[in-house]
Amino acid sequence: MLHEYIASCNIREKVALSLIFKKKIKIINIRNFSQLPGIKDFEIDLLCFVDKLTDGTIVKINENGTKLLFFPGILKNQKFEYKIKSFRSISYYIEFFFYVSLFLLKKSEIKLTGIRSSNVDTSLELILYMTIPLLRKLGFDNMRFKVYTLFFSPMYNTELIILFPAYQYKRHFTLITPGTIHKIRLLNTYSDQIFFGRKEISNFFNHNSVFSSYDFKILELKIFNSDIKFQTVAIISETTEGCIFGEDITLSYNNQKILNWSKIIAKLIMLFLDNILFGSCVDTKNHTILFLKMLNKKDKFSSTFSIGKLTFYDVMFLRNLKKISGKIFSIKYNCLSKKFCVNFNFL
């Protein structure tokens, strides 16, 4: 059976679901009403990455790129490397690998070479210090990673190696109490030139009473590659229950000149607090991984987690999931706690 989707929203997630459930998909009218219709270069690059990750995958794209046929192959457990050829950062590709990793049977090792951060993707800082700790809790206890800086490449500034163990199935997973924040770290990663540094950030937070009662530290990392100019500022917090939340912003020198950096930091803090004030137990950027974990049939017991709000991205993913697999999540809103409770039971 061929599952058909209209328009191009979330092609990456549709391809991941196709691989997981081994269902053929067809996506039509890709950006038909855009000034530049058709599939983008970074999406083609992602499909090349999928070809490296699988055996037997077949991809067909029409001449103007507005129709995609995807016939999924079999996920391989292997050691492989891939050089990213698009402007998207490493995290765009590694997130896709995380989506399908819950369904790999044996350990794998992946090496990705590309751009560390971009202003359209989750930063590598959040991947390393927020997403990977969550995956370790879900069953990848022995996951390890290494990050290297490429000093002289004009196209790439980072090499990421992830050692992925076999998934260890856990009988039950519950995450419904967020706890209270007790630790906050601000990570300032930049190339040879920066928009604002430790002094400006320290002055801003010293005058902000919200963070004065927490264990708060600023950490800096300089990337010695002058050909790729950027700055990423990420806020990461941990609660007493082990929940990790984060928000980031990446500035590149392709952007307009920054006139008021304090407004950027203030916006970053507002996005960060928005996640926490809703009482979530899982950061919104990691909802998809939790949904997929709950889908794994070998985890034969119920899994429950509490989220403060459902995003538009979550709703689109659940709709795609229902269409391709027939699976339906139980989503209930608790009026007293003002939280959504998501449940999926295989019993």
Score class of each variant (00 low, 15 high):
E4A: 07
S8L: 08
C9W: 11
I11M: 06
R12G: 02
K26E: 15
R31T: 04
E43K: 05
I61D: 04
I61F: 05
N64T: 14
L68S: 03
Q78S: 11
K79T: 12
K85Y: 12
S86E: 09
S89R: 03
I90H: 02
I94G: 04
F97C: 13
F103D: 09
S108Y: 11
K111S: 06
T113A: 08
G114M: 11
T122H: 06
L126S: 01
T131Y: 04
I132W: 07
R136T: 05
D141N: 06
D141K: 06
M143P: 01
V147K: 09
L150M: 08
F152K: 10
P154W: 10
P154L: 12
Y156D: 06
T158M: 10
E159M: 12
L160H: 05
L160W: 01
I161T: 10
L163G: 10
P165K: 00
Q168S: 10
R171P: 08
I176F: 01
G179C: 00
H182Y: 14
D192W: 12
G197I: 05
S202G: 06
N203Y: 10
F204H: 04
N208P: 05
F211I: 11
I218D: 05
L221G: 09
D227F: 15
D227S: 12
V233P: 04
I235V: 14
I235E: 10
E238Q: 00
E238M: 01
G246I: 06
I249K: 03
L259M: 06
W261C: 00
K263C: 09
I264C: 02
A266L: 11
L268F: 07
L268Q: 07
L268K: 02
M270Q: 15
F278E: 12
V282F: 04
T284L: 11
K293H: 14
S302H: 13
T304H: 07
M316E: 13
K322R: 11
I324W: 09
N334Q: 05
L336D: 13
K339L: 04
